[in-house]
Design a protein around this nucleic acid. Sequence first.
DNA 1: TTACATCTTGTTATATTATAACAATCTAAA
DNA 2: TTTAGATTGTTATAATATAACAAGATGTAA
Lengths: 129, 129
Amino acid sequence: MQNLSKNQQIIFDLIDKSPEPLKAYTILYNVQKKGIKAPLQVYRALDKLVEIGKIHKIESRNAFIACHNSSCQVAKATAFSICEICEKVTEISSDSLSKYLANFKDKDGMKYIKYNLEFFGLCKKCKVK
Amino acid sequence: MQNLSKNQQIIFDLIDKSPEPLKAYTILYNVQKKGIKAPLQVYRALDKLVEIGKIHKIESRNAFIACHNSSCQVAKATAFSICEICEKVTEISSDSLSKYLANFKDKDGMKYIKYNLEFFGLCKKCKVK
DNA sequence: TTACATCTTGTTATATTATAACAATCTAAA
DNA sequence: TTTAGATTGTTATAATATAACAAGATGTAA
Ligand SMILES: [Zn+2]
Ligand SMILES: [Zn+2]
Ligand SMILES: [Zn+2]
Ligand SMILES: [Zn+2]
């Protein structure tokens, strides 16, 4: 597990301490005081962080969240729940789910080690309102 | 099941006969001869078609594919396989999978009737190469 | 230590994807 | 026939992401 470069570390720290997924240009705005001035600098760091599994992209939201499966061996097999009201996103770590999906075979018998699953619904808070 | 409007029909027909997911601006380019000239006309039709379940958005690709689960009751519960080489996308219709996901409960016991799952791997053709 | 490859950064410009705002027109039901 | 809702047309702009090129940093292996 290599160390992060300067920009990667700055951007990871920001995402990691955020309670919600961050969008690329929100990140850019928040790191400009640290010398990161251009979109590409942000996207390059994001690409790398996704690649090594430190963060995940929430595809349906174009936003990025730190991995909280501390030992997310399977950076490429991700599952999230997304609240459609408050937009709270939670990474799901369920052995049962990940085993089921890792073993899933399609009609042709194909298996897929990589997947992304996004569940949508209402979080506890929004449900009671 | 209401009928489609003119623009919706034009755009659905294009997507439906396409062997691959289409992007919004590809669609725009292909329907300009039919009088649809602006991005917003395309996006409005796409929004509606997604809403009524005639097409699905492949979130990781920003592309749209016609629903081929002819009786896709659950327009909001979708699963696809995506080839990482040739980008072939196939909608998965598996009772087992949809039941499993529809019944999945997270740590808080929450169930989610809506989800999107994207599997990544190599299709048969690309695998043998 | 040097030479080499690789990764990382900086910078400007541009491409791609998507929505805002406003006005007109069509459609179907009361 | 009126009226509410859906659909269309149009221009402008916002939001997301990459291309292309140059320079600097880093780590290996001779
Ligand atoms: Zn993770
Ligand atoms: Zn919520
Ligand atoms: Zn479908
Ligand atoms: Zn393929």
